[in-house]
Write a protein that binds this DNA or RNA. Structure first.
Lengths: 204, 204, 204, 204
DNA sequence: GATGAATGAGGATTCATTCAT
DNA sequence: AATGAATGAATCCTCATTCAT
């Protein structure tokens, strides 16, 4: 069976990889990509520097892996929450809330996501296409929710692509505001405020 | 009078400073702070590397000066446009439009602002308080507009501080979307769409 | 008897050792000593890296062993061919031909011998005395042939030590030329040309 | 005038370049390319490590420049000596003597040339074509001398290309022998011995 | 004031060697 | 005996900053 097929080796690999990614997130979050050193990541992970290179071929690959894992979980959580919601308004709320809650629980990831993601979008890099793709998947998810709302008459007939982008980004900003300005507030409150504004903004 | 007080020396100083800031913005915009080199900035400015250090004490100071100048102009333009607008809705529109238009005209500044500003907010640094202050001035400006709208009955009674932050950030995101996804569209169109959404979101 | 004294253990040891030496020669030949990695040697040998260290105490020892084995075979073959030859001229020819043929059949060894041997001669190292010794044995062998030729009146009365060195080195160069510039020519042709030149050079 | 056109800058550049090349030759000669460190070269040159990189883009470029300069001088000297000789035999002697003498006077260069050149011939590298070219120029020079000898009846009708290569390499070996085994002997003695052997080998 | 040659601290990466399993 | 994950010393190269001219 697949699960039992995992050997001790696989488990160790996954464990170490996870440890390193965790340490990487901590260090990248506190200094930013450029000032973070592989040395410090190794220290935090409790490993020797060379060991890092057994699991990731370069500092950049490690960084991208740490970012990618977070983005995938973030997007996955949004997808699931939306899937469980029934009404269109609830789906918008689910989107906002899923992102807010994930970032609230993964503050190191949030700091990297918030401070380094823009560079990836703007500067062409090996990683750009990959993250662009993840981004567009989420956009399409939002678009389909909006289209559903328009079809159902709850949302005004707007350009779905543009509105999806704006909602996505407004949520991104709201998350940042929550984390930076109101970090001790309950996520639900922020979700309510933001969803209310969005819903009125796009609703009939 | 101030103007007559400016000596030739002052003028040259200002001229050189401006040249260097322009070159800095070009280089920081295309590579990001960390990968930009003082050498390249000097090249672009047509000066020797040492000369840069006669005008700015360090790479970081140069970076902050370049960013600060842009942020001040950006904020100044928003302030002026708002001052010229009469109705509350027009003031919101003026805020959005001023920012959008400034970034559209100063693309190098935009790239720096977009990619590096978040790090300054998140990472404690010498520069943080200064930019925090500029930021809060704009927030208070927006707050006063919102308070005016609430008092006048055009805006629902919301938490002005929070809504100001959200509008500020939503605008920031919208500007980014405009620049990255719809760079050839006329700024007014984006302004209309965004203002409409915001106004419906917060209006009665 | 010696043969019966060899246990299964001895045989395995010798087998593994041979495998590793073969892999080492392949890898050292293609990248040179400095750029060759123990990892790649282990890969080529189909063994784990640690296993290499059960048979050889260090990368350098492995290298020297690979080189030594080749040099010993090369010298041994020259010795045998010379012993089988009858006339002095035939002995010179046998020397040239034995070396040429051995290198032609063991191209990986040749590349190491050709590219790395000089460093051992020039740089004092642990290994120097050993290879110096092997070298001098061959020189003495050649000297005795030359002395025989002088005594028999076929060779002019020259300084045997010097001429032996020159013939040895001329042969070494000729082998290199053959391998690099005329690799598809039959060894005999090169042997004939070289022997002819040497023989005329030293003959009466 | 061109000579007076050399600015102070040019002179400093040439001076530093020369200093660095000299230090590089010293260090590469004593440890070999792989074990030599840029740090040590800088130390020997009395400069900081970074300074080396102002003059040479990489360790390898520095190495190749050091080698190239020597090879060019070596070849140039051979060319000049040959040009000054009148008879064919004198030209052969001039070739041998020029090389021997140059190496005798530039022992660090000799060690590098002797220990690292073979790798360049065998391992494909960026530098290969360049040195191959220099090598072939010398071969053609020798070939023309031999052809002249054959035409004049002093040399037997041999394959000029092959014989040129063999003489070139025999000389190379003889130089090595002189440097390593008889370093205190006067170069002329070795030249005489070697030229005599070569001349008898190829002469009528 | 302007220059740009020199500096050297700092950091990513490699790889021979070890040792617990 | 065999393994291969872990180690960390070693080294190349970059670039912000300084300072003599």
């Amino acid at each position: 069976m697949a699960l039992l097929g995992r050997t001790k080796k696989d488990i160790l690999l996954e464990f170490r990889t996870g440890e390193i990614l965790h340490a990487a997130r901590t260090v990248f979050a506190s200094h930013g990509y450029a000032k973070a050193t592989v040395d410090e990541i190794a220290d935090v992970a409790g490993l020797a520097k060379g060991t890092i290179y057994l699991y990731f071929p370069s500092k950049q690959d490690l960084f991208l892996a740490a970012l990618r894992e977070g983005v995938e979980q973030l997007h996955g959580q949004a997808r699931e929450h939306i899937a469980r919601a029934t009404s269109v308004e609830e789906k918008i709320r689910a989107f906002v809330n899923a992102r807010l809650e994930y970032c609230d629980r993964n503050r190191d990831f949030f700091r990297i996501y918030y401070t380094e993601f823009a560079s990836l979008q703007v500067r062409s890099s090996r990683a750009q296409p990959e993250f662009q793709d993840l981004y567009e998947q989420q956009l399409r998810l939002l678009e389909s929710v909006i289209a559903e709302g328009i079809a159902g008459g709850q949302i005004r007939p707007l350009d779905t692509a543009k509105v999806a982008r704006l909602i996505y980004e407004a949520t991104r900003s709201a998350v940042a505001q929550h984390m930076l300005a109101w970090p001790d507030q309950r996520p639900e409150e922020t979700t309510n405020l933001v969803t209310d504004l969005i819903w009125r903004g796009i609703g009939c």
